[in-house]
Design a protein around this nucleic acid. Structure first.
Ligand SMILES: NC(=O)c1ccc[n+]([C@@H]2O[C@H](COP(=O)([O-])OP(=O)(O)OC[C@H]3O[C@@H](n4cnc5c(N)ncnc54)[C@H](O)[C@@H]3O)[C@@H](O)[C@H]2O)c1
Ligand SMILES: NC(=O)c1ccc[n+]([C@@H]2O[C@H](COP(=O)([O-])OP(=O)(O)OC[C@H]3O[C@@H](n4cnc5c(N)ncnc54)[C@H](O)[C@@H]3O)[C@@H](O)[C@H]2O)c1
Lengths: 258, 258
DNA sequence: CCATCTTTGTGCACGCGTTCACAAAGGCAT
DNA sequence: ATGCCTTTGTGAACGCGTGCACAAAGATGG
């Protein structure tokens, strides 16, 4: 999961587990594809396969929404699309602002899949005066001074942060003060927000590091004893550390205990 | 989480829980910031706060790595940076290819945080002949025909997919066949890969939908009885559905049982 | 109307992850 | 050297998520 909620004691919202909520968009995507091919019904097995999950999990997920589906037949595609859309709140329009129209922000603004699901880019905001008025993806960039007014005028409750990390917390606070209660953060920083505000983050660097970990592990399994480069840092602090795990002793650790 | 592994029975790699691995980059980022400020040691409480997690969780996470840290004092920042880097496999260089140099791919190529942690963009690959040779972020884009040769020549094991959804599976298969064993997928599709290949996905649309869900829930709590727009789809399939949950009956569902 | 066959919905058990709470460890002052 | 004070490392309890396996539901054919 490139994803991750921040804070909030994992309250099961309205009885629907968080893990299930996170999968509903996957089901919806698969169902939309079926719908476009005019497939009338689909079994849990087929749909699960299309969404890349276990069929038992899918059935359990749907059971939290209600008892849609017909035994011996499956699920009515159109009906299920509607039910999930409604559950996710996609039957209404969500105006979204993007703050920080640099490389990433511009790419996001140009992203078609944005509008495809009820999300409407209400404004693009940047602090650079040179950007003001410049059209990106057909929308004129507005200056950060206007942020509060834009949020308020458009009733925006979802904000996307694509500024440098150093500005992210400050932008976040302004967004929240102006009324935004959900934030999608692309900047590599931990955002601190008041209760009642949801933050989700997307961090490319973290994803790559997780992949690197597994990659190293795969490589280490087939070629166990390899020499490590010189130890770039000194041992702990004052006294020399005595390691608890046997085998490697303190300073220059072997690549992996395998 | 914008993130999510695909397949693989959640094998605890080398005893380090997957959830812990996903947090190590967070700790590393916080530690790097401390290191730049020349802070010598840090307590679990401080570091946890900087990383946005619980201090008990942090200590347990570190306990999987070994017994670094000094009771009564805390952790040596430099030493811990090295240990986590080593654990994540960041002491070595990871050549990465990006496939699909459109809006997003170009933004990724321009992303500085890429190289900052041992990840080196080995090549940019696109199928559009018009892109070939064009420099993006100082690197000439290469044609997709060269994909296999590039992977092989550079020993690339990590690939980033930023093509349209329709091409993603095909690109994925070529990457895997050429020797890539870790994939970061930005296309909104479920990728099917053989065992031994790790896939992580980043999906903006899914993140927004999850936020919308919670946003709707927040809004629904303060204004319970609101009228829904007309039911856009017909009831289930053949016979009229009898809903199991009481209150709303079948067809036009009330907004929320609250 | 009845039998059969398919597929849902879910009770249950298990394992992972989180959190609490505390004993052990070590620095530091006296 | 001794005692105090801080902070780690972890045992244990708990809760959530996952997957199995099956009974119930309903469609379909005769
Ligand atoms: N480019 C990527 O692929 C990528 C990937 C992962 C993460 N990120 C992160 O996303 C963020 C943006 O990346 P980028 O490559 O687009 O950077 P960028 O420098 O190209 O763009 C940043 C933009 O934010 C604007 N900005 C700065 N401070 C602001 C403020 N206070 N209010 C409003 N706007 C402000 C700047 O004027 C600039 O246009 C960074 O935090 C980066 O680490 C980028
Ligand atoms: N732009 C965003 O912010 C954003 C956000 C989330 C997800 N995505 C997803 O990321 C992907 C890329 O988005 P984008 O906006 O950059 O699209 P884009 O159309 O701008 O770029 C796609 C690029 O991929 C290339 N391509 C197509 N088929 C290829 C193939 N078989 N091999 C190699 N290259 C190929 C095209 O030539 C093009 O340059 C899409 O799947 C999109 O849904 C984009």
């Amino acid at each position: 999961m490139a994803t991750g909620r921040t804070h909030r004691p994992a309250t099961r919202s309205r009885g629907i587990p968080e893990a299930t909520v996170a999968r509903l968009p996957l089901y919806l995507r698969a169902l939309t594809a079926l719908s476009e091919r005019s497939v009338p019904t689909v079994s849990s097995e087929e749909l699960a396969s299309a969404a890349g999950v276990n069929s038992a999990k899918l059935r359990k997920d749907f059971s939290y929404l209600g008892s849609y589906g017909t035994r011996g037949v499956g699920y009515d595609v159109e009906y299920l699309v509607y039910q999930i859309s409604r559950e996710l709140g996609l039957t209404q329009d969500w105006p979204v602002v993007i703050v920080g129209i640099g490389n990433l922000g511009a790419a996001l603004a140009n992203y078609g899949g944005f509008a495809s699901r009820g999300f409407r880019v209400a404004a693009l905001i940047d602090a650079d005066p040179a950007m003001s008025g410049k059209p990106v993806a057909g929308i004129a960039v507005q200056h950060a001074d206007e942020l509060e007014k834009i949020i308020s005028d458009n009733g925006v409750s979802i904000g996307v942060i694509a500024t440098p990390a150093g500005s992210a917390q400050q932008v976040c606070e302004r967004l929240v003060a102006a009324g935004v209660t959900s934030i999608l953060n692309f900047a590599p920083t931990v955002l601190t927000v008041p209760d009642g505000v949801d933050v989700r983050k997307v961090d490319l660097s973290i994803e790559l590091q997780i992949l690197a970990f597994h990659e190293q592990r795969k490589a280490g399994e087939e070629a166990p004893p390899e020499e490590e480069t010189a130890p770039p840092v000194a041992p702990p602090a004052a006294t020399v550390k005595k390691r608890t795990d046997p085998g490697s002793d303190g300073d220059v650790p072997a690549v992996m205990p395998a």
